[in-house]
């Protein structure tokens, strides 16, 4: 039994873009998918917790109720556009499905709206492309279609799980532009999962850094980059290629992320931390407030070099 997520707590305000940053195995995807009960429930299991959304606790909802949230009030964009779309149905059909299911549109109305959505996400000749199959689109185009599907019913929240990781860099830039535009025009809140701090810097209002199934740092984007508190965040920033002089060896973080078989009573990053001391191995640090909304789960105080006191 693997404890993928070990106690996270965060909030999302209306219209803001929250970036969740972490490497593979940090538990970020699992956490976000669990919000809408999207994990296959055997074998996965939500041991405890609540998800407050529009006055309901999503964890407690029955299957028929959570289905009404999915796709209509919360949209989800998955990572791999090559496999996220059903190959035997046209993109039009797949966009129209949630429209007819959640909004009760007729076929004609749904088709009009679907064309609108395709134009919204920047697919040219939308009225013809609507009858094409996924394999007739390139990777970037397919991801746009997936975004169109997620936005179809005007959700309040869009959760995007590494939507640009599988695409090449130029296409990635286009998708990011698209998201920024959509956010401006539609005003929904977005949770953007990524392993790339650079991407997060470009679009986020706030950033949450995850490691070992826990949130290790939480700050507004400028605060995080100006004054990173947690050693993991600092190491991540240091490892960005842009931060080094030419010919200097790239800095990586030695070691591997942990695979936790039970809830840790020590700091999950302690094995790889440069500043580890005794307390780190005996007590798992909670999120400690540093300044205003900026919080870090670490016993080490970078300013003094000593132990942080819990305020």
């Amino acid at each position: 039994m693997v404890h993928a997520v070990n106690g996270i707590s965060f909030h999302l305000d209306e219209g803001e873009l929250l970036a969740v940053v972490g490497e593979s195995g940090s538990g970020k995807s699992v956490a976000m998918m669990s919000l809408m009960q999207l994990l296959p429930m055997p074998p996965a299991e939500i041991a405890s917790g609540r998800v407050n959304f529009q006055g309901q606790d999503l964890v407690k909802l029955k299957a028929s109720q959570i289905r009404q949230v999915r796709g209509s009030r919360i949209g989800f964009v998955f990572q791999d556009p090559m496999t996220s779309l059903n190959p035997v149905f046209t993109v039009g059909f797949q966009i129209m499905e949630p429209l007819r299911e959640h909004m009760g549109l007729s076929k004609r109305q749904a088709r009009e709206r679907a064309i609108e959505l395709l134009e919204l996400v920047g697919i040219p000749a939308a009225d013809q492309r609507i009858d094409d199959y996924p394999h007739q689109f390139s990777g970037g185009m397919r991801q746009r279609v997936v975004i169109a599907i997620a936005l179809a019913c005007d959700p309040k929240v869009l959760i995007a799980d590494e939507p640009t990781t599988a695409l090449d860099v130029t296409v990635q830039a286009q998708i990011l532009e698209l998201i920024k535009e959509l956010r401006q025009n539609l005003g929904m809140a977005i949770i953007w999962i990524t392993h790339d701090l650079g991407v997060a810097a470009g679009i986020a209002d706030r950033i949450v850094v995850m490691y070992g199934g826990q949130i290790v740092e939480h700050a507004a984007v400028e605060d995080l980059f100006d004054d990173p508190q947690h050693p993991y965040t600092r190491a991540l920033l240091e490892s960005l290629p842009g931060r080094h002089a030419a010919h200097e060896k790239l800095r990586s973080i030695a070691g591997q992320p942990p695979l936790l078989l039970k809830q840790p009573d020590f700091c999950p990053f302690s094995a790889r931390c440069k500043h580890v001391f005794d307390k780190c191995l005996r007590q798992n640090p909670p999120l400690i407030a540093v300044e205003g909304d900026h919080r870090a789960a670490c016993w080490w105080n970078p300013e003094t070099g000593g132990v942080r006191d819990v305020a």
Binding site: A63, G71, L85, N86, P87, E97, E101, H102
Partner: peptide, 15 residues
Amino acid sequence: NQDYVRTARAKGMKE
């Protein structure tokens, strides 16, 4: 086990 099944569920379609 294909990804598009996950997408369909995420859209809120009935099982």
